[in-house]
Design a protein around this nucleic acid. Sequence first.
DNA 1: GTGGTCTAGACCACT
DNA 2: GTGGTCTAGACCACG
Lengths: 121, 121, 121, 121
Amino acid sequence: MWEFNNHSPIYLQIQNQLILKIITGIFKPGDRLPSVRDLAVETKTNPNTIQKALQELETIALISTQRTNGKFVTEDLKIIQRFQRKITEEKIYKFMNEMKALNVDLPTVITLLKEKAGEER
Amino acid sequence: MWEFNNHSPIYLQIQNQLILKIITGIFKPGDRLPSVRDLAVETKTNPNTIQKALQELETIALISTQRTNGKFVTEDLKIIQRFQRKITEEKIYKFMNEMKALNVDLPTVITLLKEKAGEER
Amino acid sequence: MWEFNNHSPIYLQIQNQLILKIITGIFKPGDRLPSVRDLAVETKTNPNTIQKALQELETIALISTQRTNGKFVTEDLKIIQRFQRKITEEKIYKFMNEMKALNVDLPTVITLLKEKAGEER
Amino acid sequence: MWEFNNHSPIYLQIQNQLILKIITGIFKPGDRLPSVRDLAVETKTNPNTIQKALQELETIALISTQRTNGKFVTEDLKIIQRFQRKITEEKIYKFMNEMKALNVDLPTVITLLKEKAGEER
DNA sequence: GTGGTCTAGACCACT
DNA sequence: GTGGTCTAGACCACG
């Protein structure tokens, strides 16, 4: 479940995976997250690392903390949806720039995407 | 022209940009690259950084060094094309995984790509 | 009505709000305070938290407990007034230090205060 | 120079003091900050604490990091000024609310401020 | 020498 | 038991 690569810091990888879990509804609005300590055990990391991973999620209001009680996914669906859209758009944008830089035009990109999708069936 | 972020080492960012310039023919097969010194000035970096960036390009045979004469883009078109294909496929693959993780299906992806392309006209 | 932030303990925030209510006469001298239980319900907190909040109010004599009868605001007006003055002065003092640290001089402060007051009319 | 109280975390106190130094021009735009290690020695804290204090300053763009080179105050005067204004307004706003909650009206506040200022001459 | 990451481990306040 | 803070100390990549 939790596998990390060396290219980017562990805390960022954890952060991203948690964002994905919130965006895709694995962690639902209002859900209580596993405790910092539990996440540390689960990911085989140090609680401090988890803390760092969660910190930014709080400043962007995806989660909130109830002291002595735990951390909770925001109940504001709009925040989550806005985030989902923002991240998707960023990735689309970045991808298109990369393809442009590689001189691959849109029809070719679409062909390649369909091919790949076909392979996986 | 040369802008760097803090998330990945500068030498890798330079490396990638040089690869792109070769792949897309801004640096053509057989061309002489700017000198390490000039690249360092142009990118406002240390010559050591440029050296490191070029090193791997040489080991993967995209460029070759002629002793006192400078560094040259390979004249072997196949190497360049193989590279172009490899990088494109990697990016396609990574992109599809990201979209899958975000629960965005292929038709939607294609729609979004076309939208973005439309905006830029 | 009762909103709390995470930066300071809830019991202190409740304590401060109760002090304000006494100082400004929302709870008048001699009034009976709502029961610990009721305050807990009203603030959606634990009765222990309310207890802790009230404890210090008692040691500084702003309120007193009548065994089985409840807690009452002191009837000694001087105590209340002394408190009002003390808190006001503390806040004034702190505020002036902050403005000094920000290099904002007194005339500017007064201008800004008047502006703000004007906006709210 | 560096004295801390127990009411709020050390890293926040350091953060605030650094913000003040930037806002008031003790650290000028473009200046290099003391290194993390040096600040740690100076404040008699751990480098991690300094890191935490500086982190948010970076996300709000008051400072930027040049890897292996140090951290620098932004050269964008507008960011600094915007910040100065924002912080001042927040403090004014908070102060006025406190005074209102204490039933102290504006003329009285101004009188008290002038008194205090007079005392310090 | 610079910042960045991570761990282990401790202590604290709060409920 | 919860999150938050802090320290000591280590290792790393970068330039």
